[in-house]
């Protein structure tokens, strides 16, 4: 088992929570963050460090041979400091996603891939049939597939069946910031699957991350919520706290809610 010893949170070291384990790799942070859309690379690095995330997503793209952009992410992010999770973002077919995953693996960091096959450009919702097909092929090739999918239980079960090491249902559409639109289905997916469930996409602010983790899922993945905040570094601190808060609240087990008031102070011993 590989253990990343970076960004260890107090919650794990104090025994309040277990580390997140995905396919034999353990992470003390349950927050996974993207590296896209930041205004500057320095803000990105500062925000990622503030988030406490150990796993970060990256995309595979052509090198700009005209050098009009400085875009190579590894000039800014030390791959020994962060666990790189390459994605197949932008792919619309199983064939393309498989191609991008193979290119990512050839970079030589790890066998993990965030599988994403887009089915519709307006909503960026996943093509679940193509996702299952690509997941099967990649898992058979030895990839550790973390599959982005919608909040559909049956698709999630199929993705687990074909060998995904984590299933990542969306909270709401990518980049929407709408938060968890269907907590019930997220809970059902968590209840029925054995692999880690990482809610991926749609988180907008700290309460969304907290509410997501309160559903009992294993982690949360976000990009735009940090990158598009007015102050990404401060938001990263907030997301770190919210992810921990939601996780601990889930583990603690909340009180039953009821629609009548119950006093917190004794009713006996009052003065005449």
């Amino acid at each position: 088992m590989t253990t990343t010893d970076l960004g260890a949170t107090a919650e794990v070291s104090q025994g309040l929570d277990n580390p997140l384990e995905i396919a034999g790799v353990t992470f003390t942070s349950r927050l996974i963050v993207g590296t896209g859309k930041y205004t500057t690379n320095q803000v990105m690095v500062d925000a990622i460090r503030a988030s406490g995330a150990e796993m970060v997503t990256v995309a595979v793209r052509r090198v700009d041979l005209d050098r009009t952009r400085e875009e190579a992410i590894l000039h800014h992010l030390n791959p020994e400091e962060f666990f790189l999770l390459a994605n197949t973002a932008g792919c619309h077919t199983a064939e393309d996603a498989i191609r991008y995953a193979r290119l990512a693996r050839a970079a030589g960091f790890n066998e993990f891939v965030k599988l994403e096959v887009i089915g519709d450009d307006e909503t960026l919702l996943p093509d679940v049939q193509a996702t299952i097909e690509a997941a099967q092929t990649l898992a058979d090739e030895g990839f550790k597939v973390m599959a982005y999918t919608n909040d559909d239980l049956i698709t999630a079960l199929r993705l687990e069946d074909v060998g995904c090491v984590a299933v990542m249902p969306l909270a709401s559409p990518i980049g929407s910031g709408l938060g968890v639109v269907n907590p019930y289905f997220i809970r059902e997916i968590k209840r029925r699957l054995e692999v880690p469930i990482i809610v991926d996409a749609g988180v907008g602010t700290a309460s969304d991350a907290c509410l997501t983790m309160e559903q009992g899922v294993d982690g949360v993945l976000m990009n735009t919520a940090l990158a598009a905040a007015k102050d990404p570094v401060r938001m990263a601190h907030a997301m770190k706290a919210a992810t921990i808060a939601g996780r601990l609240a889930f583990l603690a087990g909340r009180m039953k809610s009821r629609e009548i008031a119950v006093p917190s102070s004794p009713e006996v011993g009052m003065l005449d």
């Binding site: 990256v58 995309a59 052509r62 992410i73 590894l74 030589g108």
Partner: peptide, 24 residues
């Protein structure tokens, strides 16, 4: 990577050179 010298470039070849960029 250790076999780049073994591959000759020929007329009409399609070559893609990729790397990691920021993404979510």
């Amino acid at each position: 990577r250790d076999r780049y010298s073994d591959f000759d470039i020929r007329e009409g070849d399609t070559i893609e050179v990729v790397h990691f960029v920021g993404g979510g």
